Each structure stands twice: as C-alpha cells, then as structure tokens.
Simulated scan of single mutants.
Amino acid sequence: MGILTKTLLGVILAFSLTACGSAPTASRFATPDDTMVGQAPPDVWVESFTVSVPRSLKVNERNLYYPRGDIVWRGEPRGDRHAQVKAIFEAGLRRATPRVSGATAVRMDVQVLRFHALSEKARYTVGGVHDIDFRYRLVDIATGQQIGPTKEVNADLDALAGQAAMAAEGRGDTQKARITAHLERVFVEELTRPGGHVTAKLGLLQQINDL
C-alpha cells in the first residue's frame, strides 16, 4: 500500500476514533501461540542480557503522519537511532530483571524487530500507537543450552497526543519514560506470567501498523 494511501487512512481512522471512540479489535499477536497458552513461566532469574538492534532496520526521520520504516523515534535529539533504541531496551531490562526470581540463572538475548513510535506531526495531532516488536531467547548459564523456543513479542503501547502529550512532557512523563516503563512490565510478564505478555487492544489506529 502506498504511503499516501496509508497516511490518508491513518487520518480518516483517527478522526473516526475521535468522533466515535475506539472499538476493540484483534491485533496480530492478540492470541498467544497455542504452544504458549497455559504454560507456566520459566523458573529463571536473569543473570545477564544482551540487546541487538540490527543495522538492517531502516530509520525514517521524515515528519509525516506515518513515516515508513522500522525505526521511527523522536523522543531524543537526532543521533544514532539504533543506539538510542538499544539503550531504551537495556534500561527496561535493567529495571525488570530484579523483579524476576527463579531457580535457574539465564542469559536473556533480545533482538529488536521494530520500534515505530510517533513523528512530531502525528504526536501533536492525531496520535497513534507505539508499535514495538522484539524476539528473545533464554540461555541456561550453567549448560549453555537454550531453554524453550525463541519467542516473538508484540509490545504495542498507546501513544499520547496533542494537549495530553504536551502536558505529559511538562511533568516529565516523556515518550522515553513511558516506553521504558512499558518494556519493564512486558519483560516481567514474559518471565513470570503463564503465556507471557498479552498485547493490548488499542483500536483502529493499531490496525494501521498492519496495513
């Protein structure tokens, strides 16, 4: 689908949501894989972790309603966006790991697949969804063997917009702070909750990310 069509759809859907409220819709990861449903969380604690943000992920700095790309990040001054995203994931992991206390020491390897936050134009007008995808594996420190399958996680987060976004910035609740806190919750849920994290249902704007 062309970027112009996608942008127009985003604007139309956003105004529809403003008028009618957002109806819950199924997201691409709303139902966990059958092999994960009901499974007990791994009995682990995280001794160390790694975060990879592949350089093949494309960055888009254009100020459009919906810039195409794998990484769209405007919550920090322009710079090495791959390094900035890596630091956000590492901060979330550092805050999450002390809250996980199992029997087996593991290394958690995380690979970022997508980090599509909001452009300035979207953040201060129609809003949207922070579309965050990653995969991870757990490796037993003692044996060097992987525990269970590698898992992909969708960690979408609703994004503040307009006056709400500006008010949040004023009290220090920045995009970076919100996303870091969200990732902390996601990692804890993955390692402590049966089935792991369940993607929030964020309405039609979430559907734009799948077009």
Rank of each mutant, 00 (worst) to 15 (best):
T5W: 08
G10D: 07
I12F: 12
A14I: 04
S16Y: 13
A19D: 09
A19P: 03
P24W: 00
T25D: 01
T25N: 09
A26E: 15
A26K: 11
R28C: 09
R28P: 12
D34G: 08
V37I: 15
V37T: 12
A40G: 08
P41S: 08
P41G: 02
D43T: 01
D43F: 01
D43C: 03
W45G: 09
E47I: 00
E47V: 00
V51T: 09
S52Y: 00
V53T: 06
R55W: 00
E61Y: 12
Y66M: 13
Y66G: 11
D70G: 08
D70E: 07
G75A: 15
P77M: 02
Q84G: 13
V85A: 11
K86M: 06
F89D: 12
A91H: 07
G92W: 01
R94C: 03
R95G: 13
A103R: 14
A105R: 11
V106F: 04
R107Q: 15
D109S: 06
V112T: 06
L113K: 10
A117D: 15
E120A: 13
A122G: 10
T125L: 06
T125Q: 08
G128Y: 01
H130R: 09
I132W: 02
D133K: 10
Y136Q: 05
R137D: 07
R137W: 00
R137E: 10
L138S: 07
I141Y: 02
T143D: 06
G144D: 04
Q145F: 02
P149V: 03
T150M: 14
K151I: 15
N154D: 13
A155P: 13
D156G: 07
L157F: 08
A159K: 04
L160M: 10
A161R: 12
A161E: 09
Q163W: 05
A165W: 01
A165D: 09
A165Q: 09
A167F: 04
A168R: 05
K176P: 03
K176Q: 14
E184I: 00
V186A: 02
V188T: 02
E189F: 00
H197G: 05
V198F: 02
G203F: 04
L204C: 04
Q207Y: 01
Q207M: 10
Q207L: 14
D210Y: 14
D210H: 12
D210V: 08
